[in-house]
């Protein structure tokens, strides 16, 4: 019996969480899991806080989880990780992108971007902080940051047996396949580097 696992992806509208969760759920379905995925979309504008939940196992009932129920939190943006941290089980894992996007009050100079978030997260949970933006830029396209994070996620959840390259080939436009596969692989190794794998 495969127990149901819950993944929570959070970020800022426009960061590519939707494509990331699509790749993720397609791979999980192909691996034979029952999968449910839930997304909140509705507002057309970009820039709000967004979240996607993906749950998989032998038989998944609820499409959504509540506070304290995620096995892993993958945050595409630093402050969003802190917004959603309580959704994680205390023994859960966090993969946090070291990437900051100011929200409206911050852009207008009415609030400051909070300091020391990475430290709080590392103190509270088993966390890997990675610089997915840097990796993506090194690969030649800042947009593949989301796939770097998918790579880190599948590694952290021990889902590396699934043929993710095949999923990418069937999901993204042809000319972006290679770079996305590279991004995935870089993401996987990003959290095994520096001896941090054992932590996660």
């Amino acid at each position: 019996m495969a127990e149901t696992k819950s993944i929570l992806l959070v970020g800022v509208g426009g960061q590519g969480t939707i494509l990331a969760s699509k790749i993720l759920s397609t791979g999980l379905v192909e691996a034979g899991y029952d999968v449910k995925m839930s997304e909140i979309h509705g507002m057309a504008q970009r820039g709000g806080s967004v979240s996607t939940q993906v749950r998989y196992g032998d038989e998944v009932h609820s499409p959504v989880i509540g506070v304290g129920e995620a096995d892993i939190l993958v945050s595409f943006e630093t402050m969003e990780a802190l917004r959603w941290l309580d959704y994680l089980k205390p023994e859960g894992k966090a993969v946090v992108n070291d990437y900051q996007i100011g929200s409206a009050p911050i852009l207008m100079g009415k609030a400051d971007y909070p300091e020391g978030i990475n430290e709080i997260i590392e103190e509270k949970v088993n966390a890997n902080i990675i610089d997915a933006a840097k990796i993506a830029v090194e690969l030649g396209n800042p947009k593949v940051m989301n796939i770097v994070l998918v790579g880190a996620l599948v590694k952290a959840m021990n889902l590396t047996d699934i043929d993710w390259e095949d999923v990418i080939r069937n999901t993204v436009k042809k000319k972006f396949v290679d770079i996305n596969i590279e991004a995935l692989n870089k993401g996987m190794s990003a959290i095994s580097l520096g001896g941090e794998t054992s932590a996660i």
Binding site: M43, G47, G48, L82, R83, S103, A104, Y113, P114
Partner: peptide, 9 residues
């Protein structure tokens, strides 16, 4: 510590 992230135009 978390600052709001409201939708904007």
């Amino acid at each position: 510590k978390v600052v709001n992230r409201p939708p904007t135009l």
